[in-house]
Design a protein around this nucleic acid. Structure first.
Length: 479
RNA sequence: GGCGCUAUCGUCUAACGGUUAGGACGGAGCCCUCUCAAGGCUUAAAUACGGGUUCGAUUCCCGUUAGCGCUACCA
């Protein structure tokens, strides 16, 4: 039975790298009919926060992929203790009474790698027991077999055969001096107990895996299959961090900017993985069908963002592709949360802006004039058409004011009427349309004029044209 | 410092010894067009460096360089 897990620790908001790890696990589970497990690795009581936990769930819920089983490590401490005790009883771990403070100075000394604290490994069980009984604090360390040294090896699903000598693996801690389990122990104990078959996680754990293989060995269980993912890094080559790179590293930032979860998932999948057949836009089903470890890259992938442009252009492009392909009603419903306007107005404007927005939040800037009563102030000079002057703009608008009341507000009728009017005035169609567009939308760049006017309605259009005429007359008078 | 991993256009990537080194985003240009988009077409742009192996290396081996990771009683 195939079982995978995503095991975030609630010490920070849900990071996009973590989201990708979740997605790859999910894809692998769904691809092979396995079980997806969410395990909250909250063994670091000092650094855990409720806000982080909330952020993780918020992010995962937005992704909308789901999972089959859920656990919290803090509720499984008993298991961790028992398993550690078993390892200790086998003589594969020992107590280290070295005080935490002195340790630091010891290790930071330059030179050979630190492997263990002097003397502690060799303590007799009698002395060890006596000191523990006397209440002296200690950490429990794994007794890495180094006499003679051994090769620890495993086959990584992405990086291939891996081997490391125990001569290069230090005696890592299993239990802290307060008796709580460390990440290494808790993680392996739970992976063993939950019968995890495949561990898919970030490459930052690749070298930790040798320690984990040692723990599984001590636990007497067959290690799962490992597959390490290349890391997501920032354009400056450093790993993504909130402190350095800001909110772009948080999943909820993408949600709040109006990314579609399908597009976001699609984008993340293309970072460090490829279907190898030039496909870019892929549905959830496409991804499930195509996903495999062979397609995963070995080198880190840059998430390309800048100060001015906080989102990777490819992510934005993919998002726009999903928006263009979406049914109008569905898109209108999504847009509703990004703009304070009545649903029927949003629905009417949606077809006109669908190909003009890349993020859902763009609705607020691209379609604002559909939803406001009063247009925000604009420069009357904008009303003046190409190769024209204020007088021409005025003539155009006055003509529009005159003919529009009797025109039916549909695309075809408006087009016929306005083109005819342009002919009558002896101006080009473009020179006719621009003053009206600016009068009605408050700016030069807007959706196609006739549909826009039809959506806005006769009353609003005539009112705005009247206001534009006033503006022009005022400026002409002022000069 | 020690150990490990990695290295193709600006970015994401394809090419698992033989290609004019392919695609995508972004850039530039053209077309379409009532503006803006969308769409179509064209174009610039890469095998880190040095040695091998081979008839032939992006591809295999070694070295150099660079980047990243681990080296905690964080995860």
């Amino acid at each position: 039975m195939l079982r995978v897990r995503f095991a975030p620790s609630p010490t920070g908001f849900l990071h996009i790298g973590s989201a990708r790890t979740f997605i790859f696990n999910w894809l692998y589970a769904r691809r092979h009919g396995g079980t997806m497990i969410l395990r909250i690795d909250d063994t670091d009581i000092e650094r855990n926060t409720q806000a982080s936990l909330d952020s993780i769930f918020e992010g995962l819920q937005w992704l909308d992929l789901g999972w089959d089983e859920q656990y919290r490590q803090s509720e499984r401490l008993r298991l961790h203790r028992d398993m550690t005790e078993a390892i200790f009883q086998k003589g594969m771990a020992y107590r280290d009474f070295t005080p935490a403070e002195s340790e630091e100075g010891e290790k930071s000394r330059a030179g050979a790698a630190w492997l263990c604290n002097a003397g502690m490994r060799e303590l007799t069980s009698e002395e060890s027991d006596r000191r523990a009984a006397a209440g002296e604090p200690f950490v429990l360390r794994y007794r890495v077999p180094r006499d003679p040294a051994r090769e620890i090896q495993f086959r990584d699903g992405v990086y291939g055969e891996q081997a490391k000598s125990t001569a290069d693996i230090e005696d890592f801690a299993l239990l802290r001096s307060d008796g709580t389990p460390t990440y290494h122990l808790a993680s392996c104990a739970d992976d063993a107990d939950l019968r995890i078959s495949h561990i898919i996680r970030g490459q930052d754990h690749l070298t930790n895996t040798f320690k984990h293989v040692l723990i599984f060995e001590a636990l007497g269980v067959e290690p799962p299959t490992f597959a390490h993912l290349p890391l997501l890094i920032a354009p400056d080559g450093t790993k993504l961090s909130k402190r350095r790179h800001g909110p772009v590293v948080s999943v909820t930032t993408y949600r709040d900017a109006g990314f579609l979860p399908e597009a976001f998932i699609n984008f993340l999948c293309l970072l460090g993985w490829s279907p190898k057949d030039d496909r870019e836009k892929m549905s959830r089903e496409d991804l499930i069908a195509a996903f495999s470890f062979e397609g995963i890259n070995k080198s880190n992938a840059v998430v390309n963002f800048t100060e001015e442009d906080p989102f990777d252009p490819k992510a934005v492009w993919l998002n726009s592709q999903y928006i263009y392909a979406m049914p109008v009603d569905e898109l209108a419903a999504k847009l509703q949360t990004f703009v304070p306007a009545e649903p029927q107005k949003v629905r009417a404007a949606t077809p006109l802006i669908q190909e003009r927005i890349k993020l859902l939040c763009d609705v607020a800037t691209v379609a604002d004039f559909f939803f406001v009563d009063e247009l925000p102030p604009y420069d009357p000079a904008e009303l003046i058409p190409q190769k024209g002057d204020a007088a021409m703009a005025l003539r155009v608008l006055e003509q529009a004011r005159e003919i529009l009341p009797t025109v039916e507000f549909t695309h075809d009728a408006l087009e016929a009427a306005l083109r005819a009017a342009a002919g009558g005035l002896g101006v080009k169609a473009g020179q006719m349309f621009q003053p009206i567009r600016v009068a009605v939308c408050g700016r030069k760049n807007a959706p196609p004029l006739f549909e826009t006017m039809a959506v806005l309605g006769k009353e609003t259009c005539l009112k705005r044209i009247e206001q534009a005429i006033q503006k022009l007359q005022n400026t002409v008078a002022a000069n």
